[in-house]
Amino acid sequence: MYTPLSLWLIISSIGLATYAMRLVFVVAPSLQQMPPPVRRALRYVPAAALAALIVPELVVLSEGVQAVLLNERLLAGTLAAAVAWRTRNVPLTIAVGMGSLWLLQALFSL
């Protein structure tokens, strides 16, 4: 489907663009003179961007409330979030999340 050359082109383009996006504000001082509301809004980038990446992985919109809420990924993710909230412990969060997903998958397949 793709020649190796076209794949190399694809990943170099993505890599270059990604580097440029990480770089732009750091090396362009004129861009750092941002209006105060923009500067304050940027403080919410980590919370907003991470949540936007997480939620579509946990919730699958399907027919019926029960099917949405009894999704094993949503349940395991919620449990992991509770652990992260209480302990701030990354390995424990991942361990509890994976463990409860396996447990729920086993239960739901009974």
């Binding site: 980590p46 990446l53 992991a80 990354v90």
Partner: peptide, 21 residues
């Protein structure tokens, strides 16, 4: 595939998100 290793991806983001709240 039954190990659902891909679930580690949102879990990593969850562990990063909660302290940011």
């Amino acid at each position: 595939p039954a190990w659902s290793l891909d679930f580690a991806i949102p879990l990593t983001f969850i562990a990063l998100l909660l302290p940011a709240l």
